[in-house]
Design a protein around this nucleic acid. Sequence first.
DNA 1: CAGTGGTCTAGACCACTGG
DNA 2: CAGTGGTCTAGACCACTGC
Lengths: 263, 263
Amino acid sequence: MSPAPTSPTEASPAVSDSRVSIAPSFSPLYQQIKGLLLNSLRLGEWKPGEVIPSEMELATRFRVSQGTVRKAIDDLALENLLVRRQGKGTFVATHSEQQVQFRFLKLVPNNGNPGSEGPAHRDIIECRRCSASAEVARALALRSGDAVLQARRVLSFLGTPAILEDIWLPAAPFQGLTAERLTSCQGPMYALFETEFNVRMVRADEKIRAEPATEIHAQLLKIAVETPLLSVERIAYTYKDVPMELRRGYYRTDTHYYHNRLS
Amino acid sequence: MSPAPTSPTEASPAVSDSRVSIAPSFSPLYQQIKGLLLNSLRLGEWKPGEVIPSEMELATRFRVSQGTVRKAIDDLALENLLVRRQGKGTFVATHSEQQVQFRFLKLVPNNGNPGSEGPAHRDIIECRRCSASAEVARALALRSGDAVLQARRVLSFLGTPAILEDIWLPAAPFQGLTAERLTSCQGPMYALFETEFNVRMVRADEKIRAEPATEIHAQLLKIAVETPLLSVERIAYTYKDVPMELRRGYYRTDTHYYHNRLS
DNA sequence: CAGTGGTCTAGACCACTGG
DNA sequence: CAGTGGTCTAGACCACTGC
């Protein structure tokens, strides 16, 4: 590596960091590298489950030291976008892995551990194309009336219905998603999204409330009307904080609880 | 620094890492340093809010390079035990800081941001000494019948009661905690704990359910009986995963919601 | 065995803080 | 200005993987 500490940015071609503030448009090398890696991920240059180039290779490609690439990768691994495996390489994270199966499903049986009841049984009640209400449009950063897909499903554990979910997706990125495709899907829905539609959910925000079951809820979950349910409203985001899903879930919490760790 | 790569462990006096597995009792230097720092924190060598020695000083003290100390501190900062401030030093984290006021209180007003309603008004309903039930004993890792403190309080936002909490604490570490002391306390209860009793809450687990309001709930929160409430059962831990608090909270979720971020 | 990530070092320079 | 944390480098060695 040439000792050119005077112009470290010459190695980072056209890094436009979209920072809003008036602060000096200036960021550490490793964050610029992180941005470049992020772009490659977003554009699908490396697909979920695949290895990315080794640290040394990336270092020479970006003309920086291995330590700098390392720090960038460390950050992305911390955000669950990459997974490091010693001796093997660094991989693009996926929702299919068993270990992170419950990163986005925090309902745990009263007696037992996450997943101890085996995979949830999924029943797709409906899946149709419609136009976005003002509320859905706002959540998904669309315009009122834009085409969206709406799905409703029930998740059951050990034969007992536990979750009713209504899901809204922008129609454009999910061309061709049907009830059949959803029904035939084994494993997490987010895994389907990333393999079939190249949409990777990166994080989500949830608003949790307690609400009484309506007629509909009672019928589908086979419980009494007015039973308190956990209402979980989720907005899930892809890369770059683009909202890609609105989900309203209703959870029974007599046999399960929503687990959260504060740290 | 002497180039003695052959015996890196000679610099770490009596580092007993309590790992359970049969795996090689062997850990990276930076993790050993982390353990030493953790001990100093746990024993109160540096109190909340204080600076710890600089990276260079710690490096010479432990006979390792600055980079190694740095990595140890990075870890602890990530776990919210330390806070780095460029140009000033590294500080022991505290629950008094404004920025982390809502790390353990995730109730957000429907219209507004965390804290936008100003500090919660706290009403201590009672605080008494009693003996631990089997359930409380199990949660706090005590024996049935051991002395515990029990407190009940109501939190109000903008004059409206929003949270009812029952709190159990092991009596031993909290000698002298009275209803008066709790009542006179401004700011977070956990801040009081760390300044007055040298007990720092590090993380917590919460089990969240939807439950109908009982007579008691209805009375204290001024709502109708059977109103769905968010039941939040928390066990909070100090260093070393020692449980130090059991808390059962009931949250109104008509004007607020419990916010959770999945990532 | 070669190739990967993981650890550790030593030294340079930068950015920020406070006296 | 000196002292702090923050970034970057270059090179060494270790631990794990798979051929």
